[in-house]
């Protein structure tokens, strides 16, 4: 297999201090590269955002990487110094967040905020920076670049602000863009506009995108490959067609069934009974077992090995393993 731009291997993230702090992310592996749009799906509180923040080294205070590696273009970011990470942030690895209302500095003009990564990563004269910023404003399809350049965040709508966030994230032409629920706070019409824009930018700039969302509809419309995460574990991964066409893990099936669909109009919405357990109660077995209708005795004891369903489709579930998916060798 060719080296991927991003490869998380057996990554664990610990929350809190003490001798044995609970692990919010437990040995997950994930790959993205080649201009892919990769989705990371799961309910809120399952460790998606921590996974995202760990990549450029932005974990909040008290949260740290407890094991595994984050390979990015040949270097292990988990072992990288703050200085080295800072050089990558905003230039090679960028992020877009959920809150378009508060993610911009209210006192700075939009143009100046888009210019910030360029200034931080030493790009050219003032005129050059200005030209690149204006070009970027056009690229994210905002009207009247000159006016937007001089505007303050409060003068823009939520959708426009999220476009500005995309401009900030892409102005240095990063190799990896991590988008953490970037459309969740927007209304549906604006949401689809931003998703379409993200698709076009991914195609035109070739930036690899790791797209994180709890919203399967969004992931389905955007991503070519999908990882499904539950309680700190990756329970299933595959191409979008595999995940949405033939989901193997009970959790994935439940998630897909709970998405409202047109042909189900008039019927009650389905949900997965129960909720994501708190971090300190993740346990050693399959974390989904307590909510799983098809659990067996061994589910609660040990987390199942990864079963290989195709070259691209993997699931961690005893049901899948016994159904004849080959056990994958430990990597």
């Amino acid at each position: 297999m060719e080296t991927k731009l991003l490869a998380l291997e057996n990554l664990s993230i610990a929350v809190g201090g003490g001798k044995n702090p609970p692990l919010a992310v437990r040995g997950i592996s994930l790959e993205a590269g080649g201009g892919e749009l990769v989705g990371l799906a799961g309910e809120s509180g399952c460790g998606k955002s921590l996974t995202a923040l760990s990549i450029p080294g932005l974990l909040p205070e008290g949260v740290r990487i407890a094991g595994g590696s984050i390979m990015f273009g040949g270097t292990d970011l988990a072992a990288e110094s703050e200085r080295g990470l800072r050089a990558l942030r905003g230039s090679d690895i960028t992020m877009v967040f959920q809150e378009p209302m508060s993610s911009l500095n209210p006192l700075m003009k939009v143009g100046s905020q888009i210019a910030e990564p360029l200034r931080l990563h030493g790009a050219g004269s003032r005129a050059e920076i200005r030209a690149r910023v204006l070009e970027m404003i056009e690229k994210v399809e905002l009207p009247e670049p000159e006016r937007i350049y001089k505007a303050y965040p409060h003068q823009l709508s939520g959708g426009q602000r999220q476009r500005v966030m995309l401009a900030i994230a892409l102005v240095c032409r990063p190799r990896l863009l991590i988008a953490d629920e970037p459309t969740t706070a927007l209304d549906a019409a604006v949401q689809s506009q931003i998703l379409e824009l993200l698709k076009r930018l991914n195609a035109s700039l070739g930036t690899t995108v790791l797209f994180i969302s709890h919203d399967l509809n969004v992931i389905r419309s955007l991503c070519s490959r999908v990882y499904v995460m539950y309680a700190g574990r990756i329970c299933e991964s595959g191409t979008a067609a595999e995940i949405f066409g033939s989901p193997a893990h009970e959790y994935t099936k439940g998630l897909i069934a709970s998405v409202p669909r047109r042909e189900m109009r008039g019927m009650p919405l389905l949900g997965i009974p129960g909720r994501v357990p708190p971090v300190e109660k993740y346990g050693d077995g399959c974390p989904f077992a307590p909510r799983c209708a098809r659990r067996t005795g061994e589910c609660g004891k040990r987390f199942p090995e990864v079963s290989r369903l195709s070259d691209t489709h993997f699931a961690s579930c005893y049901r899948v393993a016994s159904r004849g998916g080959e056990e994958r060798d430990d990597e």
Binding site: L58, R86, G90, M95, N105, P117, L120, H121, I168
Partner: peptide
């Protein structure tokens, strides 16, 4: 604790900046 601070860090700002 504001979100724009996280944005600034994600752009590569040092804590002093």
């Amino acid at each position: 604790r504001e979100a724009y601070v996280r944005t600034a860090y994600s752009e590569g700002s040092s804590s002093g900046r």
